[in-house]
Amino acid sequence: RAAQGRAYGNLGNTHYLLGSFMEATAFHKERLAIAKEFGDKAAERRAYSNLGNAHIFLGRFDVAAEYYKKTLQLSRQLKDQAVEAQACYSLGNTYTLLQDYERAAEYHLRHLLIAQELADRVGEGRACWSLGNAYVSMGSPAQALTFAKKHLEISQEIGDRN
């Protein structure tokens, strides 16, 4: 049964990489059920991330957000800050797709704080870029400028000419 869970996960990933998102979703749901059966929180967390990602490409941003929230919740339980940061970043982007810029900014800010804590300059730069965009959309150009400047500073530091 445990091997079956891993096989479902691998099949889900393979369909995802082939761009078959419906099939990927079906396999990841099976994987999720087995992870729950075993109380395997790490596998459950992975399944939620994979399900969130697949729903982005199915255009179901609302469903993706719910899966990413489950990922976030479990990453905190598992005390995995890198995954927590990634979940916040995914949620920020998902709420941008849902055009809920305030909530997007909330998650991008949470991502920024964790990236700073982890001294992840690349992550910090991405968070600043996203926050600049969110504040522009919210009609707050002064705050957007602060983050755009920070984004420039970090990009120069890490040599990201793009």
Binding site: Y16, L17, S49, N93, W129, N133, S137
Partner: peptide, 26 residues
């Protein structure tokens, strides 16, 4: 409005490009 929308899409599109190849392996 259109310009703002394009700016918005830029950072999200970059994320989606990365996401396409992002799988949580077993």
């Amino acid at each position: 409005g259109q310009r703002l929308h394009l700016m918005q899409v830029d950072s999200v599109q970059r994320w989606m490009e990365d996401l396409k190849l992002m799988t949580e392996c077993e």
